[in-house]
Simulated assay, not measured.
Amino acid sequence: MKLRALIKQSRMKPFDLVIILLLILLSFLPLVIFGYQQGQVAANENETLAVLRVNGKELKTFDLSDTKKTYTYKYVDEDGDYNLIEVSDGKIRVKDTNCGDLICVRRGWISKKGESIVCLPHKLVIDIQSSAGGDDGELIY
């Protein structure tokens, strides 16, 4: 009874209430759409690769989709500089290095597409990329 009294007092027509309810329901539409897209992205995150580049040249690709494998890879250049790279549980990091600043070691684990680890003294870059490709553009070094 109070709803009818409220409608009469506010001079609303019954169809106005239907429009208001419809607009409230439509306000949740972006949440549904973006939630669906995030679910699609999460499904594709299982297919990630880590690419090791030194001086812009691709040296090695690590498959991060196998989360049960744990291993290390040691990159050594001709000057004796090294980076010890560890892959574990779908993540990758630089575990040890002989560069002076150790910023690449302090960066820690990375696992999401677009993240990177950079060791400037050794000119080493590790990027996470999707193995399925995409429309993200081309990386230029």
Rank of each mutant, 00 (worst) to 15 (best):
E58Y: 01
R4I: 10
E78W: 05
D136M: 06
V18C: 11
K95E: 14
V94H: 07
Y36F: 14
L124T: 01
R93D: 12
L29H: 10
R93Y: 08
L49Y: 01
A132S: 15
L120Q: 08
K8Q: 15
K112Q: 09
R53G: 00
F15E: 15
L25I: 11
M1A: 12
A132Y: 04
D127N: 10
V125K: 02
L17Y: 12
A132E: 13
C99V: 02
S27I: 10
G108S: 09
G108V: 06
F28R: 09
L26S: 14
I7H: 00
T97G: 08
L21R: 01
I24D: 10
L52W: 04
R11P: 05
K60Q: 11
I103Y: 07
V105M: 12
I117K: 01
S111P: 01
I92Y: 02
L22T: 15
Q40T: 07
V54D: 00
P30G: 07
V76E: 12
K91Y: 03
K112H: 10
R107M: 13
N83K: 11
R107F: 04
K74H: 02
L3W: 07
F34R: 03
G137I: 00
F34W: 08
C99P: 04
I85S: 06
F28E: 11
Y75K: 11
I33H: 05
D81F: 13
A5T: 11
M1I: 09
E86F: 05
L6Q: 03
E78H: 10
K74G: 07
E58I: 06
Y82T: 08
K74M: 13
I24G: 12
A5L: 11
F34T: 07
T67Q: 12
K8A: 14
K95V: 02
E86C: 14
G39I: 08
K123F: 03
L21E: 09
D101W: 02
S27C: 13
G56F: 02
R93C: 10
E86M: 09
E86R: 11
P14Y: 08
G35V: 06
P121L: 02
E86P: 02
M12Y: 13
K91G: 02
I20H: 09
V18L: 15
K60V: 05
Y141P: 05
Y73E: 10
V41S: 06
S65D: 14
